[in-house]
């Protein structure tokens, strides 16, 4: 209360604020309260759970690498250049952030699927994307790429170009400026973006189930496993949900720790 007064906030703001906080925390408490702690360990280490968790970590890791490889250049182009239609491109790139993931999955299906836009090309190359782990990585990259681009573009804009200008007048070629000045300066933002992308990829469900299918060890990631376990073994679903909550908490802690270090 005292701090609210000194901050000049009207006191009544605390009531909806507390309600909002409770609204977010309470479900997590409810989830934790439903966990069968006696069987927790055996539930989260069952073969199917372990397979799903390992697959999730593997695909999310790969998707994060792809996000960095594709997203860093995208953020650089958006933050450091201006061209006609840039605003439109930016909006389109951010679309997966607000698109229902299932819509993303359908769109991917009509792009990379057998009957899709690139289906024949992919066939000719002898690649099989449908129902493969590659499809999972594609779906995860699709939904998590904007997180990296948004976060990095913001950092780039905040950092400004003054250091880059100085570096170029010191004789540094554009590639040297990028490597020795731009990227080191935005490294915290890049790390935060990568962690967010990883978290989004780890939680990806809708696009995956629509586009990649669901098969243990190949395409059934942890969220899909949770959804399936609900059918027969709600206790396992709850236990695995808690695992994802813990991972999410760790991720947020990592991002916050990073940004505080700035």
């Amino acid at each position: 209360m005292a701090s609210a007064r000194t901050s000049g906030l009207p006191r009544w703001v605390l009531v909806p604020a507390a309600a909002g906080a409770l609204f977010i925390v309470l479900p997590l408490v409810a989830l934790a309260s439903r966990v069968q702690w006696g069987s927790f360990w055996s539930l989260v280490t069952s073969d199917s759970s372990r397979e799903a968790l390992l697959l999730s970590l593997r695909t999310s890791g790969t998707a994060t690498v792809l996000c960095v490889v594709l997203g860093v250049p995208m953020a650089l182009v958006l933050a450091r250049t201006s061209f006609r239609g840039q605003a439109l491109i930016r909006s389109l790139v951010l679309l997966p952030l607000v698109l229902p993931p299932v819509v993303g999955g359908i769109a991917l299906l009509y792009t990379f699927g057998r009957q899709g836009l690139l289906g024949e090309t992919i066939d000719v190359l002898g690649l099989q994307i449908a129902f493969s782990t590659t499809a999972v990585v594609i779906a995860q990259t699709f939904v998590s790429l904007p997180f990296l681009v948004v976060s990095l573009e913001g950092t780039l804009r905040t950092a400004g170009q003054r250091y880059e200008v100085v570096a170029s007048t010191l004789g540094a070629r554009p590639t040297t400026v990028l490597r020795r000045v731009t990227l080191p300066l935005v490294l915290p933002g890049l790390a935060a973006g990568a962690v967010l992308s990883f978290a989004r990829a780890l939680g990806e469900f809708g696009a995956t189930i629509t586009f990649a299918g669901s098969l243990e060890g190949v395409t059934r990631t942890l969220p899909l496993e949770i959804y399936l376990q609900r059918e027969t073994d709600p206790d396992a679903a709850v236990a695995l949900s808690l695992v994802l909550v813990v991972v999410a908490v760790l991720v947020i802690g990592l991002v916050r720790g990073r940004s505080n270090a700035l």
Binding site: A130, G213, Y227
Partner: peptide, 19 residues
């Protein structure tokens, strides 16, 4: 190649020609 969540999902994969 996939074990779907519901019969609708199975049908979807067939309709789209993926399966």
């Amino acid at each position: 190649v996939s074990e779907e969540q519901s019969v609708t999902d199975v049908l979807g994969k067939v309709v789209s020609g993926e399966a």
